[in-house]
């Protein structure tokens, strides 16, 4: 590492472009949003930055607070399901034969590289009332009905397609579909580093697979679990597209409310305040995580 003062010219050559870009096209826009959040509408296209806190006061009203809490709950549920589904997958990749491992990883990563909108749209086509998921469920239903006639009971009523889309279930399902790769990859990289002889030792000493899993694998993979949870929770909390396309009228999340302030409702200062509240929420989550990892470091 060199001190910048001893090498002013090379430092200027590498530092100018990134610092300039960051200041002009990231810090400046964010600052304007932050200033707008203390402003009020003064005309159709005029915003007066008066230092008022009204936008924040309005944002903490129950109507918006409840949407915020609901977004948090939906994101947390999505993360939990991703963790439950993703953990065995990450385990399977870790313990797979070396020649299979890269292909399994690729299998998880390819959807992650595919366009988000296309994936959401593909899922919607499958979940529609005439889609294959409904047909599959109908098939199961008829199977159950046939089984009932087999044991001499009345057959079930005919299958009526269920509404799978445009409700809260669809939002969580869609978010899990989109975010699953985010969870599996950090879990895998943590499990891959784990010393496998510890698991063998635990099994040799008489612990069962479940006990070994809970008391050896999970604590050792904790950093990966925390990373996976953060990397899933944060984008899920700010998700816009999935609730917008797959949700119903009651499944809006905070990002949809923000979008409305800028497009239909045209209340930019209030939208700015809401976006900054969302950013603060992210900061709190990240601070909690770094506090936790510092504590772990101190304990060791």
């Amino acid at each position: 590492m060199q001190d910048w003062e001893s090498q002013k010219k090379p430092f200027a050559a590498v530092a100018t472009a990134p610092v300039f870009w960051l200041a002009l096209f990231f810090i400046a826009p964010m600052t304007i949003v932050w200033l707008y959040s203390f402003g009020q509408n003064a005309g159709p296209a005029d915003i007066d930055i008066s230092g008022t806190l009204d936008n924040y006061k309005r944002a903490t009203e129950w109507l918006y607070l409840s949407i915020f809490l609901k977004s948090l709950a939906v994101a947390a549920l999505t993360t939990l399901i991703c963790l439950i589904v993703g953990f065995p997958v990450a385990m399977a990749i870790t313990f797979a034969a070396p020649k299979w491992r890269p292909w399994l990883l690729l299998g998880i990563m390819l959807p992650f590289w595919t366009n988000l909108l296309i994936r959401t749209y593909a899922l919607m086509a499958l979940m529609g009332t005439n889609g294959y998921m409904n047909k599959g469920l109908g098939g199961l239903w008829e199977g159950a009905s046939w089984l009932r006639t087999l044991v001499g009971m009345q057959p079930l009523e005919a299958w009526t397609p269920v509404q799978l889309l445009y409700n809260n279930f669809a939002v969580v399902f869609g978010l899990v579909y989109v975010h699953l790769p985010f969870m599996v990859l950090p879990l895998y990289s943590a499990l891959d580093r784990l010393d496998k002889s510890l698991i063998e030792a635990s099994l040799d000493l008489g612990a069962g697979h479940f006990k070994t899993f809970m008391q050896v694998v999970v604590p050792l993979a904790a950093p990966g679990i925390v990373a996976g949870v953060m990397i899933t929770l944060i984008p899920a909390l700010g998700a816009y597209l999935t609730p917008d396309l797959m949700g119903g009228t009651d499944s809006q999340m905070i990002a949809n409310v923000i979008e409305r302030q800028f497009k239909r409702a045209n209340d930019w200062p209030f939208g700015a305040a809401l976006s900054f509240l969302l950013i603060y929420a992210m900061f709190i989550l990240i601070a909690l995580q770094s506090m936790r990892s510092n504590k772990v470091k101190e304990a060791r």
Binding site: F11, I258, I279
Partner: peptide
Amino acid sequence: FRFPFKGLVEGTMSLPIIVPEICLGVA
């Protein structure tokens, strides 16, 4: 390089990754 406010620059540079897309879009 070692330079003043390095931590700040580094932290700010990772922000576009963390800040939710919707907030960046609005900005």
